[in-house]
Design a protein around this nucleic acid. Structure first.
Length: 153
DNA sequence: AGGATGATGAAG
DNA sequence: TTCATCATCCTA
């Protein structure tokens, strides 16, 4: 699992900062999905955080495929299993997440994010976010240290 | 209307 | 390093 946090207007890399006014979702409905098309090619899936009125979200950059492997391979083609959902664009393609899913409730329905139960022994590393041009120093990228599914760059 | 930009990924 | 390709923002 690999994620990045995007905050409010004080975070230069956040849409809340350089796309103010749009993306109303960003400012409310915690627990819902914020999906946008990036570079005209790739969709990015975020989980809105915080209470209504306070912008913030978590970008899902990578995850470890555990179920629905066949469907993911169908959508992604001949790629190593570890690569199936590695990278924001690859993740949404593997899960078939598109602009349609913008606003979806992530606590119920077809696209659900939940905490895995049971103890997990992994270490979470953090560092600067990837592919951004502002607020580059903030250590808001989090990933499971040494996990093969995290995206590189 | 036209141009620039961006939280990417694949190919060269 | 280049390019594909588009919603949104900025300029005129």
């Amino acid at each position: 699992m690999e994620t990045e946090a995007y905050l409010g207007p004080e975070d230069g890399a956040s849409h809340a900062a350089f796309r103010p006014g749009s993306h109303a979702l960003f400012y409310g409905t915690g627990g819902h999905a914020y999906v946008f098309l990036n570079y005209g090619v790739h969709h990015c899936l975020n989980a809105i955080t915080g209470p209504a009125g306070e912008p913030g979200c978590v970008l899902l950059r990578a995850l470890e495929p555990m179920e629905g492997l066949a469907a993911m391979r169908r959508r992604r083609g001949a790629v190593a299993t570890v690569r199936l959902a590695s990278g924001p664009g690859n993740l949404t393609r593997a899960l078939r997440v598109t602009a349609r899913d913008n606003g979806t409730d992530l606590t119920r329905g077809a696209l659900v994010i939940f905490a895995a139960d049971g103890p997990r022994a992994f270490r979470i590393a953090c560092g600067p976010r990837i592919g951004i041009t502002r607020s580059t120093a903030l250590p808001l990228r989090f990933w499971i240290a040494g996990h093969p599914c995290v995206s590189g760059r």
